[in-house]
Design a protein around this nucleic acid. Structure first.
Lengths: 177, 177
DNA sequence: ATCCATACAGTCCAGATCGGACGGTATGCG
DNA sequence: CGCATACCGTCCGATCTGGACTGTATGGAT
């Protein structure tokens, strides 16, 4: 049974565990404002995945009768157990990165001479911008306690951004200096 | 035409540009030893993608007659132009990360009290190991000039690993200290 | 009241991707 | 010669993807 579950499944289970019963749209917004920062999600999956989890007995659905037939999903005990088991088990996979800029750098020999410098400039600017956004978020949120707890993951994102910035900056120095 | 190309397409084009004419299996090995470190590839795509690129006129295929019918792919001029154009154009997308450990950290409130500490320990160990592997690679390769050039991307990987290590270490300090 | 614009909520689908199972072919070794 | 083990390639169902599309509420201007 556990074999059938993907990270996506756990995102759904986990979000419902943190926020309580939710509709797909709730999930979409919640994910957008949180995990979405470090893990990309197409919203369509947040509509199909909960149904799968209902079939597996990890969620219960409650259909609302009003004008809009929405379905609210809540955790079953099995679902909560499954989530806890996942949290407790070792994490074998290593993180994966997909970085177009890094790909381009790898193939730079094939391109024109100035390309690396331009690429590096571009990346330095992009990372600086992201860092500013993150820091802004942190400032605005550190006061709210509940949210602050979850900000811990943002710190990792920030570390990553700084690492990338350092890399591209030093590359830029080497290339243009 | 350019719209039909995915990052995968450029990996194939780029690898052939760097290594010369290649079979799918050549690509598989080359990718495994290089880009594979920072960009995951299922091998099946390295068998289907080149054919697509032939259909688009970016590669030429040459079927070998011997016992095994292998197909060797080489760049066409159009293919080289397409690759160069891609290298020269701005890179809009931001890098994406998928990190199971980070997901678990995000949902940690739902789990047991000791989980974060265990997770952090685990990650510290894992990142240390990867760093060792990278550094070993660098040492072995810096002498070979052609390869050394391409090692530049490894430096980014290394920076990322260090960033992650710093993060999990400091988290571990906070949690267990 | 009626109309339009806009945000909100959900569905759908045709590709792209995925990984793993499988089947053939060479190579080495007892 | 026969077997095991790598090497090489194909195939397929299951997922994932993003974007187009439908419909529903809201609210302001007319």
């Amino acid at each position: 049974m556990a074999e059938r579950l993907s990270p996506t499944s756990y995102v759904v289970l986990g979000t419902i565990a943190l926020r309580g019963p939710s509709t797909s749209y709730d999930l979409k917004r919640a994910v957008g404002r949180s995990i979405g920062y470090f893990w990309h999600f197409p919203h369509a999956q947040l509509y199909s995945e909960p149904q799968r989890l209902v079939d597996l007995g990890l969620l219960e659905a409650e259909t609302e009768e009003g004008g809009r037939r929405r379905r609210t999903f809540r955790l079953t005990d099995t679902g909560r157990d499954e989530l806890r088991a996942w949290l407790a088990e070792p994490t074998p996979e290593h993180f994966q990165m997909r970085d177009i800029a890094e790909l381009k750098l790898f193939f730079n020999e094939v391109g024109a001479p100035g390309d690396v410098e331009r690429l590096a400039r571009e990346q330095v600017a992009a990372h600086r911008e992201r860092i500013a956004v993150y820091e802004d978020m942190q400032e605005r949120y550190t006061s709210l306690d509940a949210v602050a707890k979850r900000m811990i993951t943002l710190r990792l994102g920030l570390e990553m951004e700084h690492a990338a910035l350092r890399f591209w900056s030093s590359l830029l120095d080497e290339v243009s200096g």
